[in-house]
Nucleic acid binder design. Structure first.
Lengths: 330, 330
DNA sequence: CGATCGGATTGCATCGTGGCAAGGCCGCGC
DNA sequence: GCGCGGCCTTGCCACGATGCAATCCGATCG
C-alpha cells in the first residue's frame, strides 16, 4: 500500500493536495483531482483511520459491555446494537463480564485508559453507584442498560415493574391461584428487584391467591431447572410460574416435563425477554417481550448525542414492552 | 484529564521523561520517577492509546465477521473468541453480514480501508475465492472459519465430512432405515456441501436404507420447521432426520411435535453445532458438538501469529468434534 | 497596463507516542 | 585538577491526517 507522499509525487502535486482530494472538503481543480485519484488507484493508497482518529479525537468505535453473549437475550440485543451503531457510522467492540463486578469495574477503568472507544454502553449486573461515579471522571460517555438507573448516567430500560405485574395479572386472569416467582437472587444485590416488586404488587391485588418466591443461583436454564426441581420436591404443586427470564423459564419447562407435569394444563409458565428459543420450543413460551430494537436504537442515539458533546442532564428512556401469549399459558 | 506537557511541567522534567517513566523501557532515576508518577496521579494523565497505535502500527484490535449473532452457534463462538482474544491482549470488533455476500465483501474491503484491526477472523457464507483473493492484497491477515477453505488463507475447521458421516452412522446403527438430510440449499453456493457428502457416504454404505434430501431456505428454526412440514406433507414418514444445524433440528422437532409424531420413537433427530438450546429442550437434542473453544483458540493463535509477521504458508487447523447422544435419538 | 479578486494549491503546525542519538551531569581514577 | 566513563535526561523527528493561513496564479476590471 502506497503512502501519501508517493501519491503526491506520482500525481505531481503536494501531499496536502492529496489530502484535499481525499477529504473532499476543499475545492480541487477537476484535472488535478483526476490525476490524484489515478495515482491513488495506481499505488493502492488508502488513508489511515488511525491518523484521522488522532487528528480528530474521534474513533467511531463504541464499546459494549454485556455479561455474556451466550445468553440469547444479550446476543439478540447485541445484534440490534451493532445494527444501530452501523446506522450512526459506529462500530462496536464487545466485552463480556460474566456479571462479575470486578470485571465490570475493570472494563470501566479500561474505558479511561487503554481503550479507544468514544463511548460505552454498559449492561451492568453488580456495579454500585460508587463504582460508576468513580468512573464518571472519564470524558467518555456511558449509557446504561438494564433494570437499575445510576445517578448521572443516561439509562435505557423498559418498565420492569409494570411488565412483571402484567405478566402476573395475565396468570391470575386465567384463573391461576398459586403463583411462584422464579428468579429472585440472594447473592446478587438487587438485580430484578423491580420484577419482584411487580410480582408482589399483582399478587397483593388478588387476596385469594398464594404468592411464593423461588431463588436461583444464576439466570440460566440450569438455574431455572434446579429451582423448579427444588420447588416440585419441597412443597405443593403451584399452578403458575412467573420466571424472571426466558432462560429460567426454559429450564423450568424442562424440569416440569421431567416430572410429568403438563404445561399449561397443570402449571402455566411465563417468561421474560422473548428470546427466539422460546418461540419454537414445546410448549412455546408466553413471555414479556421488550422492544430490543427500540432499546438498541435509544441507547445508540443517546450515546452518539453525548459523544457529540451534549452535556445536558442525564436522561432516562423508557422502551416499550408487551406481553406475548403463547402455549405455555394456554 | 491532563496532558503530557502539563505533567512534565508539574514534575519539573521534560515531556520526554514522562514518556520514559510511562513506558518503563528506559532507566529513570528513582526520585524522578516518583515525582513524575505523583504528577500523573495529580493531573489524572493517561497516555493515549491512539497515539501509541499511530506510533507502533499496532492496534490490539481484531475484527470478527460472522453472519449473525442471533444464531446461538455464532454467539457461543463469539464468546469463546472474545475470551481467546483477551488472552492474547486483543479486543474484538464484531460485524454481522447476515450471510449476504455483498456485506461480506464490503467488510473485507473495509478491513483495508476504514477499519483499524490488525487482522480479521471471518466466517464466510457466500464469499468466492475471487472475492477473497481480491482482498488478499491487504496487509492485514485474515483467518477463515467454517466449512470451506480458500487458497492462501489460514483456515480453522472441524471435519464436517466425518462428523456428518458419524451422525448418520449413529442413526443407521440404531436401526433407522429412511434418513432425510435437512439443510441442503439450492441458492447458496456450496455451504454445507461437506455435511451433505458425509451423509451420502454413510448412506451409500447402507444399501438397504433410503436416503432423502430436504432443502431449506435459511439455517434457522423456521427453515427447519418449514422444511419438515413440507416433508411430512409430501411423502412417507421417514424414521430419522439429520439436520445440518441445531437450529434446523429445533425447528424440525417443533414441526414433528405439531404433527403428533413422537421423537425419537417414530422419528429420530440429529443436529449439528451443540448449542445450549438443544440441551434443555424437549426432547434434548443429539448433535455433533464441535469444540468451539478449540476453534476459537486456534483461530486467535493463527491470527496473532500472522500479525506478528509470520509469512509462512497458510495452515489448516482441524479442531475436534464429537457426537453427543441425547434423547432425540433415544 | 496595473491593481484587485478569487479559486487552487501549498507549507506549517498539531494531535500523542516513542525510537534515536546527542547532551548534561556526577563521580571516580590518575 | 583534569579527563573519562556511565547513567539520566532531553530534543528532534516521524507516524498520518487535517485546520489554518499564506501563497500563487490567471482573470477581470478600471
Amino acid at each position: 500500500m502506497g503512502r501519501r507522499e508517493d501519491v503526491a509525487r506520482l500525481a505531481g502535486v503536494s501531499a496536502r493536495t492529496v489530502s484535499n482530494v481525499v477529504s473532499g472538503t476543499v475545492n480541487v481543480a477537476a484535472g488535478t483531482r483526476e490525476r490524484v485519484l489515478a495515482a491513488i488507484e495506481e499505488l493502492d493508497y488508502r488513508p489511515s483511520e488511525i491518523g484521522r482518529m488522532l487528528r480528530s479525537g474521534r474513533t467511531g468505535v463504541a464499546g459494549l459491555v454485556v455479561p455474556d453473549l451466550d445468553n440469547p437475550y444479550f446476543a439478540e440485543l447485541a445484534r440490534k446494537l451493532i445494527e444501530a451503531a452501523r446506522g450512526h457510522g459506529y462500530t462496536l467492540m464487545i466485552e463480556q463480564t460474566d456479571g462479575v463486578r470486578d470485571r465490570e469495574r475493570e472494563l470501566l477503568a479500561r474505558a479511561d485508559t487503554k481503550a479507544i472507544f468514544d463511548g460505552l454502553i454498559v449492561s451492568p449486573l453488580g456495579l454500585t453507584d460508587d463504582d460508576l461515579s468513580r468512573s464518571a471522571r472519564t470524558q467518555r460517555p456511558v449509557v446504561l442498560l438494564g433494570e437499575e438507573p445510576h445517578p448521572g448516567f443516561d439509562h435505557v430500560h423498559i418498565d420492569n415493574f409494570v411488565a412483571a405485574r402484567e405478566a402476573v395479572e395475565h396468570l391470575l386472569g386465567a384463573g391461576r391461584r398459586h403463583v411462584v416467582a422464579v428468579g429472585a437472587q440472594r447473592t446478587v444485590r438487587s438485580s430484578s428487584s423491580l420484577r419482584l416488586s411487580g410480582f408482589e404488587a399483582a399478587m397483593e391485588a388478588a387476596p385469594d391467591a398464594t404468592a411464593q418466591v423461588a431463588y436461583v443461583d444464576t439466570f440460566t436454564r440450569r438455574g431455572g431447572y434446579d429451582a423448579t426441581r427444588a420447588l416440585l420436591h419441597d412443597g405443593p404443586l403451584p399452578d403458575a410460574l412467573f420466571c424472571f427470564s426466558d432462560l429460567l423459564a426454559l429450564g423450568a419447562l424442562r424440569a416440569l416435563h421431567d416430572a410429568g407435569i403438563a404445561v399449561p394444563e397443570q402449571v402455566a409458565v411465563v417468561g421474560f425477554d422473548d428470546i427466539e428459543d422460546g418461540r419454537y420450543g414445546h410448549p412455546s413460551l408466553t413471555t414479556i417481550s421488550p422492544d430490543k430494537e427500540a432499546i438498541a436504537q435509544a441507547a445508540m442515539d443517546a450515546l452518539v448525542r453525548r459523544i457529540g458533546g451534549d452535556e445536558s442532564e442525564a436522561v432516562r428512556v423508557l422502551a416499550p414492552h408487551r406481553l406475548v401469549e403463547r402455549e405455555s399459558t394456554g
